[in-house]
Design a binder for these strands. Structure first.
Lengths: 156, 156
DNA sequence: CCCGTTTTCTTGAATGAGTCAAGGAAGCGA
DNA sequence: TCGCTTCCTTGACTCATTCAAGAAAACGGG
């Protein structure tokens, strides 16, 4: 098992407790899976969790991911055309590079200063809470294998 | 009918022709529906199209939207947790305000200068093609009806 | 340390946006 | 008008995600 039983609690356990969530092996495994697989979709998380806990139901993973997202222990991102993906890096307002060809997702730090695009030219009266920036393009490998063109097939 | 038969072609017809697409009444109706319903989802587009063309199949609308998106006559956006939505305003790199409570979407112009967030601090070797910025928050009405709090229920 | 309450997990079925595929209809250049 | 090509209709299907009911586990109080 990946659990830490040496006196002090493992990081996931502490994180769950700090968020007033019950500590279950399923949730610990989900947290660890998200840590180990940056930007993993639910399918990937389920498989990763089952390496340690073969019996988990997909529903438990869905539930855990929702709960963890709600309390802010993981973050859910869903670039257009993609299923839900989860990441553990939270608290900072970082953004994402998404490859149009292979769907690779990479983190990037905030662009300009600290909260770059957090001030739209006019906010239409909205109370703005968060700015989410997604950069679309081609990752190094895909760019290399399709020289000259940006989008190899179609993509928008 | 909304079609223009007075000598020169209607705008949608011309747009289709300019994009080397066959001019069909279904595509014209889809283009007009997207114009008339900013940020409409596919369901809404289908209903709008059927007001003029009661017999259109949902598939024709899906196909048209895909084709129109491919040639750049409409743009498809998919904020997290939302189904695909389409808009006619294209060519400028404008962004969106999305209300977490009622899902209202409003356009905003580019924030800083012309291409605000188009330069991530490090691009991880990506060839960047487009930056997509989504501002999450509460629209004026929802903000008014839930004073003090930003997100009424849960949200991320 | 055990019990009871509450939350969470398992199981299995259902939902719904979007896609696939085959044949008929319409657009459009000759 | 003809014929080729593209597009539309019909209907079945996929698959991520959700719903629901009952069993199991967590954990605070006794």
């Amino acid at each position: 098992m990946t659990e830490n039983k040496q006196g002090h609690e493992s990081e996931p356990t502490a994180a769950l407790r700090n968020s007033s969530l019950r500590v279950t092996k399923q949730r610990i495994a989900v947290l660890e899976a998200v840590c180990d697989h940056q930007h993993a979709d639910t399918e990937t998380v389920i498989c990763a969790v089952r390496e340690n806990l073969p019996e988990v139901s997909h529903q438990a993973v869905y539930d855990s991911l929702h709960t963890l997202t709600e309390v802010g222990l993981v973050r859910c991102i869903q670039p257009s055309g993609s299923v839900a993906r989860y990441e553990r890096r939270i608290g900072d307002n970082h953004h994402h590079l998404v490859c149009r060809s292979c769907n690779l997702i990479v983190d990037v730090d905030c662009t300009v200063g600290q909260a770059p695009c957090l001030t739209p030219s006019h906010d239409a009266g909205f109370v703005i809470e968060q700015a989410e920036v997604t950069f679309w393009g081609l990752c190094p490998e895909c760019a290399a294998s399709s020289p000259g063109r940006l989008a190899p097939a179609s993509a928008v």
